[in-house]
């Protein structure tokens, strides 16, 4: 699942429309607005402005939805910078202004989005404080840190759209919506690429026939360490494409399995190893 975190609804309303997501009924255990549907691999969560809310939204989502290392977390939103309004950036370096700490999401998935460095500040940055070549937001470093407790830097993405040059007083919700609407095409492409690549990784991962292994362990009277050996052996043989079931079925037919006791079980295990390795 790809979890997209945005500070404001206006930053993602078109994305919500694109993925045909509906607002989830509010829940006292998770106070942030969540947009989802039953089939979409994307959920969008509105965090509110600033680091504390952003970090709370991420860590709350981790426990509420059971986010783990297989899921991805993407932060999408607006930022300030000396660039043309509407310019879209993928952040390859995030600096937390108050501490000076830096964070680096992996840049693995190909994207046409231009890359840039972002500084996360605690109050909106003013025109004169904007450094050349830098972007400014109020959530990215907090989202990185909260997410990184559970997911790796290869599972994070930060996409920011320039909404102002530090003159945010003139910025209206409608302007934000328009700027983000214009960027929706490239953002959707980025999110979809993430979904596609992640999906492929999951399909690759083979699953062990746990029921078979458990039954075999029980029939061999395995100790804990023998159980590990059996599991590792079956896993290896499956990966090698070895037809272990036919051989082991033979041992069942000969009456060697179920074994009488642990000692006999160990003899059987050695026999299986000897024959199949």
């Amino acid at each position: 699942m790809v979890y997209v975190f945005c500070a404001f609804y206006g930053e993602c309303s078109d994305l919500i429309k694109h993925y045909n997501l509906k607002k989830r009924q509010s829940d006292k255990h998770y106070r942030f607005d969540v947009f989802e549907n039953e089939v979409s691999p994307v959920k969008i969560i509105i965090t509110g402005q600033g680091a504390v809310l952003a970090a709370s939204a991420v860590s709350g989502a981790v426990s509420y939805f059971g986010i783990d290392g297989k899921d991805a977390i993407i932060n999408i939103g607006t930022c300030a910078g000396n660039y043309e309004l509407g310019s879209v950036f993928l952040c390859n370096k995030i600096t937390e202004y108050v501490t000076g700490r830096t964070f680096y999401p992996d840049m693995l998935i190909k994207s046409s989005i231009r890359e840039g460095e972002i500084v996360t500040v605690s109050v909106p940055v003013k025109e004169n404080d904007i450094a050349l070549g830098k972007l400014y937001d109020m959530e990215a470093s907090a989202i990185y840190q909260a997410a990184n407790i559970y997911v790796g830097p290869h599972k994070m993405g930060f996409v920011k759209v320039v909404s102002d040059n530090g003159n945010y007083d003139n910025l209206t919700p409608d302007m934000v919506k328009t700027i983000m609407a214009d960027a929706t095409g490239v953002i959707v492409q980025y999110v979809d690429d993430f979904v596609e690549v992640e999906g492929k990784v999951e399909v690759l991962s083979s699953s062990l026939d746990a029921t078979y292994v458990n039954q075999l362990c029980a029939d061999l009277h395995c100790s804990k360490s023998m159980e590990n050996q059996v599991e590792q052996l079956i896993k290896y043989l499956s990966l090698e494409g070895t037809d272990y079931k036919t051989y082991i079925d033979g041992l069942y037919q000969e009456g060697k399995i179920p074994a009488h006791d642990k000692k006999n079980g160990k003899v059987c295990l050695d026999e299986i190893k000897g024959a199949l390795l």
């Binding site: 290392g69 693995l108 790796g152």
Partner: peptide, 11 residues
Amino acid sequence: RSKQSVVAQHN
């Protein structure tokens, strides 16, 4: 950095 994936990075 914490929680990196050596395998993903080799891509």
